[in-house]
Amino acid sequence: MTVFKGRTKGLTDAKLSYCPGCLHGVAHRLIGESMEELGIIEKTIGIAPVGCSVFAYNFFACDVIQVPHGRAPAVATGMHRARPDRIVFTYQGDGDLAAIGTAETIHAANRSENITIFFVNNATYGMTGGQMAPTTLPGMKATTAPYGRDVSDTGFPMRLCEILSQLEMPNYIERVSLLSPKEILKAKKAVKKALQYNTDGKGLSFVEMISTCPTNWGMDPLKAREWARENMLPIFPLGVFKDRAAEEAKEKEAE
């Protein structure tokens, strides 16, 4: 067997605890590779949320802390203020970030803390068994929306990139997807760019990754990706919502 690329040094040797077909492993790898390529593994602190990725402290090779549900951006704020010479990132799911942690997310973004928030959106609460998330699609079934999400009752899926990009101060906001190799390569660029911005002290980076949950969606991994492409991407369009550092660089060039 030929190994084209070994495991990144940005991840530990621990076996991932995610379900077969889950894209957390991909997202982890993108962050691990980016840390390795930027040479920042030893000076990075990761923050594991509550949710499936609660065990991320086993997987990232940087220092990691596991924190209360939704509070990662506040913890990151305290860390970055205590150690401005360190790179701090949070890794959060949609329930953690967009429901219980909405206030912490919005305010950390508004202060443009020099941290990166990695937001993995799979439209469900994975760990607790498929309950309705703030990002669950209209009509999509969940264990707490057994007849499908009724938006007149529970609201429309929340688009965090769009909400946060209304704020003046955040540096970089992009939504990427993990649904195909091509998109994963693009996601990698966004992940690395975000961490590079933090290394350069540019302020808050927010990278949302559209993902899947084959287990709770009740689909095989390929079908789940197809379904996400057809149903999630129209509601969560991909793209760069804010890139102040790039704009400023462009302006400088124009001068």
Binding site: I45, I65, V67, P68, R71, A74, V75, A76, T77, G78, M79, H80, R81, A82, R83, R86, A103, E104, I106, H107
Partner: peptide, 24 residues
């Protein structure tokens, strides 16, 4: 020093958690 008025007491104590974890 760092003074930060948090968005809530919940956020404030979690900022404390983060700073404490960094050993200050």
């Amino acid at each position: 020093g760092t003074f930060l008025q948090a968005e809530s007491e919940v956020a404030a104590i979690n900022m404390v958690l983060g700073a404490a974890a960094c050993g200050v």
